[in-house]
Amino acid sequence: MKLTEERMYQASLDKDSSFEGIYWMAVKTTEIFCRPVCTARKPKRENVEFFLTTEEAIEKGYRACKVCQPLKKLNETPPYIQELLTELTQNVSLKIKDADLLKRNIEPVTLRRWFLKNHGMTFQAFQREFRMNAAFKKIKNGESIIETALDSGYESLSGFNESFKNILGTSPKNSKKQMVIDLKRIETPLGTMYACATDEGICMLEFTDRKNIEKQFTSLSKALHAEIVQGENKHFPQLETELKEYFEGKRIGFEVPLQIIGTDFQQKVWQLLREIPMGEVRTYKQQSELLGNLKAIRAVGTANGINKIAIVIPCHRVIGSNGDLVGYAGGIWRKQKLLELEKAILF
Rank of each mutant, 00 (worst) to 15 (best):
K2Y: 10
L3F: 04
E5Q: 05
M8P: 09
Q10Y: 14
S12H: 13
D14W: 06
D16C: 10
D16T: 08
I32S: 08
I32R: 11
R35Q: 02
P36V: 10
C38Y: 08
C38W: 09
C38M: 09
A40N: 14
R45T: 04
R45S: 05
E49G: 08
L52C: 13
A57I: 01
K66G: 12
C68W: 05
L71I: 07
L74S: 08
N75G: 03
E76S: 03
P78C: 13
T86H: 07
T89C: 05
Q90P: 04
S93M: 05
K95Y: 06
K95C: 03
I96E: 01
K97M: 12
D100C: 14
N105Q: 11
I106R: 00
E107L: 13
T110A: 06
T110K: 08
L111S: 09
L111N: 05
R113S: 03
R113E: 04
F115D: 10
K117A: 14
N118G: 08
N118P: 09
G120D: 14
Q124D: 15
R128V: 15
R131I: 01
R131W: 02
N133F: 09
A135W: 00
K138C: 05
K138P: 02
E143Y: 05
I146A: 07
S152N: 09
G153W: 02
E155D: 09
L157Y: 09
F160K: 00
F160R: 00
S163T: 06
N166Y: 12
T170M: 07
S171T: 15
K173W: 11
K173V: 09
L183Q: 15
I186E: 01
E187R: 07
L190I: 11
C196T: 03
A197E: 01
T198P: 13
M204S: 05
L205P: 04
T208Y: 03
D209C: 02
N212Q: 06
E214V: 14
E214Q: 15
K215H: 12
F217H: 09
K222G: 07
A223R: 14
L224S: 10
I228D: 05
I228F: 11
V229S: 07
N233F: 04
N233G: 11
F236V: 00
F236M: 00
P237V: 01
Q238T: 07
L239H: 04
E240K: 01
T241H: 07
L243H: 01
K244W: 08
V256P: 02
L258R: 02
Q259C: 09
T263C: 08
D264G: 03
Q266H: 14
Q266F: 15
Q267K: 07
K268G: 09
E280D: 03
T283M: 06
K285E: 15
S288D: 03
N293H: 00
A296N: 01
R298M: 12
A299D: 11
A303F: 10
N307Q: 02
K308F: 03
I309P: 03
V312S: 04
R317E: 06
N322E: 12
G323M: 12
G327D: 13
G331R: 02
K335A: 09
L341W: 01
E342K: 07
F347M: 12
F347Q: 12
